[in-house]
């Protein structure tokens, strides 16, 4: 029982991590580097979009990602009785 609880907990955790890291990769290496030139055809205010992702947007998303992970894991800890 205890072992299988730990196993499902770990699997869920890995799922969250992979999902969040995929977003992490997309906004920085994707939008900020690989697809920068395409995105630069669009503008928000004075910012070319690719440039904005590289120098602003990706960092904001990073902060959000960590806090989302904190929330997800606090819930998951509770669900599995690991929050003590």
């Amino acid at each position: 029982m205890k072992k299988s609880n730990a196993k499902t907990y770990w699997k869920e955790n890995i799922r969250y991590v992979l999902l969040l890291l995929a977003i992490w990769f997309l906004v920085s290496f994707g939008a900020g580097i690989l697809f920068k030139d395409t995105l630069n055809n669009f503008k928000i205010g004075g910012f070319k979009l690719g440039f904005w992702f590289a120098q602003q947007g990706s960092m904001y998303v990073f902060v959000v990602l960590i806090f989302v992970y904190v929330r997800l894991m606090n819930k998951l800890d509770k669900k599995h009785g690991y929050d003590v």
């Binding site: 991590v17 990706s58 990073f62």
Partner: peptide, 21 residues
């Protein structure tokens, strides 16, 4: 200019790895 983004993304993106991994 744009190239400076390596420091901005590089020195902040690492914290996502730290927090998650």
């Amino acid at each position: 200019g744009y190239d400076g983004a390596v420091y901005l993304m590089g020195w902040t993106g690492g914290y996502v790895l730290l927090a998650l991994l």
